[in-house]
Design a protein around this nucleic acid. Sequence first.
DNA 1: TTAATCTCTACTTTGTCAATAGAGATTATT
DNA 2: AATAATCTCTATTGACAAAGTAGAGATTAA
Lengths: 153, 153
Amino acid sequence: MKLSLRGEYALRALLVLGMNYDQPIVRIQAISKQQNIPKRFLEQILNDLKSAGVVESRRGAAGGYRLARPPEEITLAVVIRHIEGALAPVSCVSERHYEKCSCPDEARCAIRSVMKEVREAVVKIVERVTLAELCERSRNLQQEPVIPFDFVI
Amino acid sequence: MKLSLRGEYALRALLVLGMNYDQPIVRIQAISKQQNIPKRFLEQILNDLKSAGVVESRRGAAGGYRLARPPEEITLAVVIRHIEGALAPVSCVSERHYEKCSCPDEARCAIRSVMKEVREAVVKIVERVTLAELCERSRNLQQEPVIPFDFVI
DNA sequence: TTAATCTCTACTTTGTCAATAGAGATTATT
DNA sequence: AATAATCTCTATTGACAAAGTAGAGATTAA
């Protein structure tokens, strides 16, 4: 499950929306500037997330985006699956995007059994972590000062 | 770490070589036929694995391939890393293929911290599983009969 | 000598990723 | 009502990689 830039941008934009969940709306340009994401590209991505029911938008002069649901209810799995497709490393072990593979005996394939483990390990993490947790982690990380390389007493 | 077909073919070919580790050599055509892998494509892949020190070859009429090391010493991680590159879902959390990402503050990025967990989970599995274990799993799976869908007493 | 193999490089085809662009619709503000 | 700032939708582009395909050559057993 190598994440594409598109998927990474989606998560970063959602993190911004999560951190500003108290605000009525966040402009796309604000996200774009803060996160170094090309604006027109981000438009597409947020539009896509809208069709997934993750964000909602308001058009017009004071328009922008906000989360369609509380951050606690949005898991990384939902986002990544919608943007990227399968979480599984090979599609023959995917639950929702299953595709038959070309190996001679899929049911007794040893590689497949390992790939299932990988899939489970990944799913376990991204289905547990919500946007709310991401925001909390972000807040915690902001407080910890980064030790600079040239730090001297 | 979505596996490409190339990577999947590599693992399937190595599984065949592992299962035939007692044989002096296995012909590329035998692997190709048994595993439904295009022969010329498989040539490239095995050649690539040779440069990684995973397999060795004998040319000529009775030529073919064999493992360059015992199956116990070949982990899936080594193979996948050589064929696919980074195991990490985003390159900013990769140990050996690190690349800076475009986010404003990588050191305090919450998404990055989750991706690190994903990377660890994947690495933990593929660094532990060797070709030998893959072969053992394969032998065990061969013995278990597959229950057919239309099974009736 | 021959036939079967591996070796190496190059090419092609197809698809995807990451944007970029243009025209339109909506809405707050003036 | 006009305007400017937004979101919406579709199309296009350029770069790149993935998945083969192909050809000519080198090696070796029989």
